[in-house]
Design a protein around this nucleic acid. Structure first.
Length: 106
DNA sequence: ACTTTGACTTGCA
DNA sequence: ATGCAAGCCAAAG
């Protein structure tokens, strides 16, 4: 089981209307500061057939949509979240309402 | 094979 | 609060 697969599993487990951060995912797979791997994994996913993975539900620790630039358009990410009743505070997701902590992988 | 970069986070000044 | 550097693992040049 590669780190990428674990990341994919966790991101895929994010429930609708919820979001999580790179740091939490990284922590869940054991890589405390491996948050960048999450970004790479999602980037790989974005250019792969793993479209089942809601990469739009992954934000940075501030709730900002740092990955929005890698979508078809920079605002698709926010539109998808808003479509799931996700509240925004300025340009960031209201983590106090929608933060979802991924389960530990063991 | 080595260096640089990346959808990040944390620590120190 | 702002700015610079370190650390994590993987991919691209």
């Amino acid at each position: 089981m590669d780190l990428y697969d674990q990341i994919h599993n966790i991101v895929r487990a994010i429930p609708p209307g919820k979001v999580t951060t790179y740091g939490h995912i990284a922590a869940a797979i054991g890589a405390r500061s491996g948050a960048r791997l999450v970004g790479w994994a999602l980037n790989a996913v974005a250019h792969s057939d793993r479209l089942d993975i809601p990469c739009h539900r992954v934000v940075n620790r501030l709730g900002e949509l740092s990955g929005r630039m890698h979508f078809e358009t920079p605002f698709v990410m926010r539109e998808r979240l808003e479509a799931e009743d996700v509240r925004f505070v300025g340009d960031a997701v209201d983590l106090s309402r929608h933060l979802w902590i991924p389960p530990m992988q063991g």
